[in-house]
Write a protein that binds this DNA or RNA. Structure first.
Lengths: 335, 335
DNA sequence: ATGACCGATGTAATCGTTTCCAAGCGCGGC
DNA sequence: GCCGCGCTTGGAAACGATTACATCGGTCAT
């Protein structure tokens, strides 16, 4: 593979000059520049980014560690992040944590070893040594969707409080009185926020939230199944279930199907995060939608601010309820 | 950030020795090795992979260019690829081509600039200059799912011929006679294979495949909608539609919903690629399932063979039909 | 005529590793 | 007592770029 030296030789100049035209520094005679450019294309030379990064100490690469690639919310987020980053001249390297702390830290370290310029992360549950060290070491870093308490890192996220309240009101109005929730991991910030909002909203309408109506999940499909099966072995099962992410909602559907129960006749269902398929499920599923794309864009904006030496603050967007048939109301009778 | 020199100084040895223990070369006294290791952990030193790769000319990184991250089939594939690669000591960098040739080539070049050791790609439609050059330049490369004709590159893929035939037989047995297909991009190998299999199977049961029953899609949701709306402005619309990927099937569902048509009463639907949600749609959707994980694993195996100097051949797995209610048969009456 | 200055280019150090080669040392065989 | 050998270790040259600094004509003001 041709190197800068080959180009220099072919153009009859020094490597310094080649480098100058490549990085368009001023002060190269027009004719020389043309000669260099010609040599570059004749050899179809491409600079070695490893060498360049080693020397300049910047990679123009952002790391993105997401919780789970199989979750459509995160892939949409990843897509938005990549788009925005590319527009700003950065590449993105994605690491999939699969909701596992160890895997997350593995990726964080790998990314850091690659000397990425900044890190975007939606942290998994638990105490991440790698993330804490990185933050302390001053690696430009932004949390997206989820975050870790006590770290001085900007957070770009969606606040679902209002939407969860709307959901509870909605369910209450439809006559549901035994509302259950399936949470994410105990230490997950988003899950806790959603749980707190749910509990507060229930209190507002004068409903209790007994412990056995709190299913302990982990944002993965299987845990939705598990929680559902526990709910329905209760003497008095819930009449509505709120899954705090879309994969657990899938798990709920799967388990209800094996139990032979129907939505919304036997139980209502709602989910956090809206995905295209929710419109075509049987029945269409009520969901709380996040402005996912904007989340990604804003996160990249914040991170590049940090990387390029500007300061960056946290951003909070808001989610909204999309009511569909899964909560009992027939949308066809509504309008 | 601490470098190998700092470690050497702290351990009281030369950088050469540090490097030797880091790469565990033999011939370092046990006591020296221990001292070095201690220094490494005291400084929490991590080797700079850029420098290392520059010197050794290998990155232990694989590039994966997929057609569309928003397509669950590809994210599942990506996940499998990453798992397998990690197991073999490689990292994976993903590029999302979004079904666009230009974006694909952008990623291919970026990946090559990063000096990845090998490239796994599921090529988009069209003549990719970047891929052709890479193949010619001898970059270790493997195609997965889709491929490009005339390039000497191993292909790891699924053959759907048999499954498509099973599907056609299934539809025919259920009384359908006007079968339509929505294809991917014209030059797409997988789409062409599926179309050819569909046409052949129709011939076998003595059914025609008129041109107006061939919807021209591009593997994206919107094209599924478009093709469906064309089908239903025909004097005689099809009574069954086969979408050659899951996103286009989503588009079909969306369009049928706006047209007020019901599956399977008004028209049957089947899709290539099975996804978890197909079980919970209204009605559950008949699909042809690929062994996606195995596809990913085998692709990585083939690529690492190439990277590590062994030879690698193509692999063809096979898909199978999963019949659900969307084709008219009520699965509950079957068993 | 001289020196300051300017624009265009080249020389060489540097980034953090790996690895080839040489060197120091102790030891056994002659 | 010397030579050669094996075992450890160190010195220094790469890898391919960027960039501070030097150089070299030439112009212009004095």
């Amino acid at each position: 593979m041709a190197g800068i030296k080959d180009v220099a030789a072919r153009a009859g100049v020094s490597v310094a000059t080649v480098s100058r035209v490549l990085n368009d520094h001023s002060g190269v005679r027009e004719e020389t520049r043309a000669r260099v450019l010609r040599a570059v294309s004749e050899l179809s030379y491409r600079p070695n980014t490893l060498a360049r990064s080693l020397r300049t100490d910047q990679t123009r690469t952002l790391g993105l560690v997401i919780s789970d690639v199989l979750n459509p919310f995160f892939t949409e987020l990843a897509r938005a992040v990549e788009d925005e980053a590319r527009g700003r001249g950065y590449s993105v390297i994605i690491g999939n944590a699969d909701e596992q702390l160890a895997l997350q830290d593995h990726h964080v370290r790998t990314l850091l070893d690659r000397r990425i310029d900044g890190l975007l992360v939606s942290p998994a549950e638990g105490d991440s040594v790698a993330l804490r060290e990185a933050a302390l070491a001053g690696i430009p870093m932004v949390f997206v969707d989820r975050w870790i308490e006590g770290l001085d890192v900007p957070v770009v996220r969606t606040d679902g409080t209002r939407a969860v309240r709307d959901l509870v009101t909605h369910l209450h109005r439809l006559g549901h009185r035994r509302l259950a929730i399936i949470t994410g991991p105990v230490a997950s910030t988003t899950s806790n926020e959603r749980l707190a909002a749910f509990r507060a909203a229930l209190a507002e309408v004068g409903l209790p939230l007994p412990d056995h109506y709190i299913g302990q999940g982990d944002f993965q499909t299987a845990s939705g199944r598990r929680a559902t099966s526990e709910f329905f072995s209760l003497p008095e099962p819930p009449d509505a279930v709120f899954a705090t992410d879309n994969l657990m909602a899938l798990g709920v559907m799967e388990q209800l199907r094996t139990l032979g129960l129907r939505v919304p006749d036997d139980v209502s269902l709602a989910a956090f995060d809206d995905i295209p398929w929710f419109l075509h499920t049987d029945p269409p599923i009520t969901a709380i939608a996040q402005p996912t794309q904007e989340l990604g864009h804003r996160a990249v904006a914040a991170l590049t601010d940090l990387v390029e030496g500007r300061s960056a603050g946290s951003v909070t967007l808001s989610a909204h309820l999309i009511a569909r048939r899964s909560c009992g109301e027939d949308e066809r009778t509504r309008r």
